[in-house]
Design a protein around this nucleic acid. Structure first.
Lengths: 142, 142
DNA sequence: TTCCTTGCAAAACTTTTGCATTAAA
DNA sequence: TTTAATGCAAAAGTTTTGCAAGGAA
């Protein structure tokens, strides 16, 4: 008989992921990670809190915020700020770009190879480039 | 004798600018415009409020917010959202890009000709492109 | 024990709104 | 006179913080 529990092994994988990034894998942090890292997505803090509720796993609001900031600080999330609404946390931390749909607020990931530059601006003296991020804003007519 | 008052004629110019954009040029709105449009800059709402105070021209907080949103809606300002801090209003509404200095939060305008693309991503079906904006993030080592 | 984490509530902060007053058309 | 704009205070929304209690090392 096979006793593998997929949810359990997923939790083990997440614990390892957190530990690798110097984060103590507490129960609450693993629950937040379950919500975030099941796929590439861009969630607001509020969406994370709701998703936890739907999962039946409660984590206090303050801990969610602290955890999101902790994950972002350790490189497990990228904090996005694309419109004047609240911050979104991108579970895809590889370099990439975005298409931002006006009106719906929908965000679409663009792989880095889909954008190429033939010219980039000179950097200020002494500064070193950290990243180049492109946001293509689009509208759905109608 | 010459009776030209430069501050006064500047105010006349701003009144005309607001009127051209379908904005009733009230005293408060002209005061906010004086702060914003003296040069290309990126100010937060709070910075606008402080600048008004320094000018000796008081405008209530709610009116400042309403005015900034009104100007942005009418195309006199572009609302930026580059980090998780509050929204900045860019008095340069021509297409352009930005260099964002980590740590200081400094924002540097990049003219559109300084960036050229040899490839851009396909847009979602039926969507039309509104703008392409590049943010180069840099760090000053030390 | 010692250090770190959690949860709750309260605080801080940015932005919006309700409404009486005032100014403009 | 009729409409629009202002100012204040209060409300709403997001995020942070203080602190007592709980858990892990």
């Amino acid at each position: 008989m096979d006793h593998v529990d997929p949810a359990r092994s997923e939790r083990q994988r997440l614990k390892a992921l957190l530990a690798e990034h110097g984060i103590q894998p507490t129960a609450q942090r693993v629950r937040v990670a379950e919500v975030l890292f099941c796929r590439d997505q861009h969630l607001t803090a509020e969406q994370v809190i709701h998703a936890l509720g739907r999962n039946g796993s409660h984590v206090s609001k303050a801990t969610v915020y602290n955890t999101l900031n902790l994950f972002a600080g350790k490189g497990l999330l990228k904090a996005l700020s694309l419109d004047r609404e609240c911050c979104r946390f991108d579970s895809n931390t590889r370099p990439h770009h975005h298409i931002h749909v006006e009106g719906t607020g929908e965000l679409i990931d663009v792989p880095p190879g889909s954008v190429e530059f033939s010219r980039l601006p000179p950097l200020p003296a002494g500064a070193e480039q950290v990243s180049v991020e492109v946001v293509v804003r689009v509208r759905r007519p109608g």
